[in-house]
Amino acid sequence: MSALGFVRKRDDKAAYLFLLPWFAGLVLITAGPVAASFVLGFTDYNLIQPPRFNGLENVTRMLGDDRLHHALGVTFTYVLISVPLQLAAALGLAMLLDRGMRGLAFYRSAFYLPSLLGSSVAIAVLWRQIFGAEGLFNQFLNLFGLTGRGWISDPDTALSTLIVLNVWTFGAPMVIFLAGLRQIPVMYYEAAQVDGAGKFTQFRRITLPLLSPIIFFNLVLQIIHAFQSFTQAFVVSGGTGGPSDSTMFYTLYLYQRGFHNFDMGYASALAWLLLIIIAAFTALNFWAAKKWVFYDD
C-alpha cells in the first residue's frame, strides 16, 4: 500500500517498552492463577481441603459425563444461533443510526439502554414481564386468541428466550460498529457518488471492506463471549440452568461443579477443555480472516 518503500528496522526495543505494562500484568496477575487452574485440573480439590493429585481422572470423567455433553450441545446451539443474529442486528442498526437522520442520539441511547442493565438482578424479573406466563408476549398472543405458556420455564423454549435476550442486548457490538463506521473517511463515499455508485455498491465496495477489521473483531469476541455465556442464564434461571437443564450453559455447569458441589478440580479441567474449544474456533476465525478482512498494511 505504501508509496514510500523505505526499509523498516525491527522495533523490538520500542515494542517491549510499549508492552511493559501488559507483560507485567501477564507475569504478575494472569500467569499464576492460569497455571494454578491448569494444575488443579489434575487434582481432586474441594476448596476446603488441600488438592490431591488424581492424574487423568478428571479427563476420563468428562468422557462419561452426560450432563457435560448436554451442556456442550446447549452452548453450541446458543453460539451458532445467537452470535450471527446479534451481529446482524447490531450492524444493521449501526448503519441505520450512523448519520443523516433526526433524533439519532435518542435512538442510539434508547437501543443501548437494555445493554446497560447488564447482569442486574432485575433482569430475571424483567424478562419474566416479557416471556413469563403473564408477560407481554402472551398478552400479544391473546389478541389473536392464542394461549401462550411460561416461555422461560418451558424446557422447549427456554433457550430461545435467552437467545432473544442476547440479541436484545446488541448495544455493545452496535457501539463498536458505530465507532468503526465513523473511521471510514466520508470522502470515499463522496467519491463513489461522483462515480455514480449506488447504495448497495457503496456498502459492498466501501463499507464492508473498510469495516471488516471491526466486523472481525466483533465476530471473534462475540464467539468467545457466547461460549463463556454465564450471567444471563444464571440470573434468568436462578443459577440452576433449568428448566430441566435446558439452559445449562457450559460455564454455568462448570461453576455449579466448582462452587455448589465443591468440585473445583473437575471444574478447572472443564475450564481448560473450554479454552481448547474456544481457541480452536478463534484460530479458525483468524485463518478465515485472511480471505475477507482488509487491513491497510
Binding site: 430475571a124 424479573v125 419474566r128 413469563g132 406466563a133 405458556r149 411460561g150 416461555w151 422461560i152 420455564s153 418451558d154 434461571s237 436462578g238 440452576t240 433449568g242 428448566p243
Partner: peptide
C-alpha cells in the same frame, strides 16, 4: 395445580411472585 411451565416459573421466582 397450574400448567407445568407456570409452576416451574413460580418456583424459580421469589416468594413475592
Amino acid at each position: 395445580a397450574p400448567a407445568p411451565s407456570v409452576t416451574v416459573e413460580r418456583a424459580g421466582a421469589s416468594l413475592d411472585q
